[in-house]
Design a protein around this nucleic acid. Sequence first.
RNA 1: UGGGGCGUGGUCCAAUUGGUAGGGCACCUCACUGUUAAUGAGGACGGUGUUGGUUCGAGUCCAACCGCCCCAGCCA
Length: 471
Amino acid sequence: MTGLRGSSTRSTPARREAPRSDLTPPRDEPMSEQAHESAPIITIEHAAEHVGRLVTIRGWLYNMRESGKLLFPIFRDGTGVMQGVLSLKEQPDAFAALKGLPQESSVIVIGKIQAEPRAPGGCEIHISGIEVIQRVADSNPYPIQLKEHGVDFLLDQRHLWIRTPRQASILRIRAEAIRSARNYMDDLGYTLTDAPIFTPAACEGTTTLFEVNYIDDQKAYLTQSGQLYVEATAAALGKVYTFGPTFRAEKSKTRRHLTEFWMLEPEAAYAHLEDMIELGEGLVSTVVQAVVKNRARELATLGRDAAKLEKIVPPFPRITYDDAIQVLQKAGNPAKWGDDFGGDEETLISKQFEKPVIIHRYPAGMKAFYMATDPARPELALSFDMIAPEGFGEIIGGGERQSSYETLVQRLREHNLPEEAFEWYLDLRRYGSVPHAGFGLGLERTVTWICGTEHIREVIPFPRMLYRVYP
RNA sequence: UGGGGCGUGGUCCAAUUGGUAGGGCACCUCACUGUUAAUGAGGACGGUGUUGGUUCGAGUCCAACCGCCCCAGCCA
């Protein structure tokens, strides 16, 4: 046993205060050590496999219902919640230890798992012993109820909010998305090459940067994309990607924006637009199917219809920017060629499909300075966006990069970007420049869509937003 | 940064045409052997974001400021 209890880190005063009567039956050594022999430690997610057996659960008191001489505590252990049952008549000592125990007190429970249709989840634990690890003070009860709360309050309590089943499920889905995305990239021969977080200048002139004081009065900026660096590592290693946090100081107050979010950015030398569209399809469908397969329980907790996600398999519908304009105009949207798409337009287009839709070949004028243009139609950029279904917005943006030194210098000037800061980047065009392409996948937007959550702030453990950096 | 909305016990809300602040939950006490955000009874807890006006009297009206939410822009 090497879990929480096994280490020597746990020696809180609360533990020593725990009266002997909390242990039922009394033991000479801490219950959990003994429990290892007779009642193996299990997690709630696997409780159904232990029906009929005496087990140990280590966790927290999530809620408790009382009915006369019966207690119905609900425990959570990080993997799920399970109801316990305890009667005064059969277990007077354990009853006394549990009765009146405040919400979120930490406990170790021994009991027999039994199938029980009346219990939420189908089985429950018949408690025979309980050890209170830390009792929440009566004078300062747990702030989060099982009733409704406002968003602002919950965000102030984010460090506790994540204990609720819904939030914990979202975070597990997020982890599954990351795991499957990285596996997919690794299996395709892409090498993870991390990009720096401190950068000397903007990757794109259009967005706002967080400025920080570097050493000796030097200024540095928090990265808003690993894009430029991954172009360098692609020329070194061929197929690469970066996965890490990015920062945007935009004053965007919408349900789709964070100031700190995570991006997965692949880049491949000798790759073209089509290659990246296919990679994006494969990546997104793989992630979605991994969540459907491995986190079905969590999706159910969220009330997310897995049937909608099961349909997310390649190929995804693709339309050109030109066609997208047609679609919008037919639907009565006043969009005209040259306009960028806002949330309304994205939603309108995405609602026509059950899968993410790829819009490619946008007008070059609205894209970043490093985008390559279509040789067949120079007014178009070799770019693409992937729009999630159901109006969840853009999850991927990318395309083919400008590989010509001369054109790139010209673009830098047009965008009023400081050439000195981009000297290293221009070197990539001086020394063995090749066609290359890549994209950025917004992790939180993708997870928001998969989870079907209203707001992006729920899909990252501690959201950083405009005007919120606490907790 | 524009447009719209909102700030009332710990929390979620209510308070007629301005009349001196109330309920649910949480918390404490009691009852109840199958509860399902248990239920029933009792108890404690605020003077309404801040400042300044109008008024006999202001959560209620006016102004400014602060904070938050939603939408737009920008983007992932």
